[in-house]
Design a binder for these strands. Sequence first.
DNA 1: TAGTGGTCTAGACCACTGC
DNA 2: CAGTGGTCTAGACCACTAC
Lengths: 230, 230
Amino acid sequence: MDVPTYLVLADRLEHELAAEPAGARVPSEHELARLHAVNRLTARAALDELEQRRVVRRRRGSGTFVSRRYDMTVTPQSALSWSQVVRAAGGSARAEVVDGPTQASPEDLGNGVDVLVLHRVGWVDGQRALCKTSWLATDLVPGLHEALPRHDSLFTALEQAYGLRPQRHALRAEITAPPPAVRETLDLPRNTEVVWIASRTDSERTGRTVEVTHSWLRADLFRLVVDLRP
Amino acid sequence: MDVPTYLVLADRLEHELAAEPAGARVPSEHELARLHAVNRLTARAALDELEQRRVVRRRRGSGTFVSRRYDMTVTPQSALSWSQVVRAAGGSARAEVVDGPTQASPEDLGNGVDVLVLHRVGWVDGQRALCKTSWLATDLVPGLHEALPRHDSLFTALEQAYGLRPQRHALRAEITAPPPAVRETLDLPRNTEVVWIASRTDSERTGRTVEVTHSWLRADLFRLVVDLRP
DNA sequence: TAGTGGTCTAGACCACTGC
DNA sequence: CAGTGGTCTAGACCACTAC
């Protein structure tokens, strides 16, 4: 036997699943083993392989499901909105504001500025997929908590509700192990990596920095692509 | 049992290995199983875990060895040399020119320019770790094959041997599955991802593009960090 | 040739999820 | 509650590497 059984199975499954929509149920390990007359561990190895290939995602106790990956393209000039990326690819995206610890703010907002901390969680295709912590200059965004739900994203709120002419710049990006708070917020299984992106939004109108945001995105759901062309 | 056996073993091993140098031998699966009185598959699961954490690397038939990871920081202005990164972290780095297919060149070099194709392989800590394909404007680098071995890198050759005042710009970076040619060149096992970086080097002296390079780096050996600050 | 990691079988018990 | 994925055992044969 040249190609191992589990890889034959994995390739075959991947091919079959290509036609399925994200979230579709994949046969369970026991069922797969029965169907193909192999040991459960062999069927499991095939699913392990597909999980590594980011084709499926598992939820203990509930099952294995087709997964999709979105290309998150970051450029120095702007950090593209994740919700745009997801919706453009036909997925569903929504965000909600959550409580969280008040963390020390980065220094980009300026000294002595009163800082508002905002924690948000993003849902993609019905799953918690990312979280963000934003630090904002309080005086530039009065009543933000009430204004935010009326807009698609924080960025459009800054634009439309406050007329700040926001300019978003990406600062730094890397793929890393999630900090404990993020792991808990997103309920990440072991071994899940995240894409970390730091960005800053300046206001063209006031000439000040409005917002600094740290984003953590499940790396199995988002693929980091960096475009550095000027 | 709260924490599974294989994780206890993995954490313990990781702690022990932290003091070992890159390349140090790790106990084999059979030996680990015997030492800790567990099944071989349990010992194997622990090593699987450490491989995913990029703490060890396996070579079938020869053993498991301590691995190290280097941060490859890319900025829009310049793509830092991998050999600098490795040597600064105390690792060993060398490059060699190899034969390879002549591939269609990107269009950045200009129309009608005679193009020289250069394939190089990089060795890190004694292992093939990356490969590069460069397209160069032939007329700007006469006798490059003879000049190259006298320099640390292609970049310094352009600088010192040809006085081109080179300026390197990173263009694009992503983490992806290796193309078959790269998989073969680097003898990559299944499931190994690579960091792909496209960069362009312009000559300040001539005002022309000297070189376009595509680099593929083992993602288990190099961690992509992107710094987008101006 | 001896030892390594890679694959595979036939079981078993568990924690967790959804109904 | 039944079904899911997660862990674990005790075996086995194989391809590959180093000596």
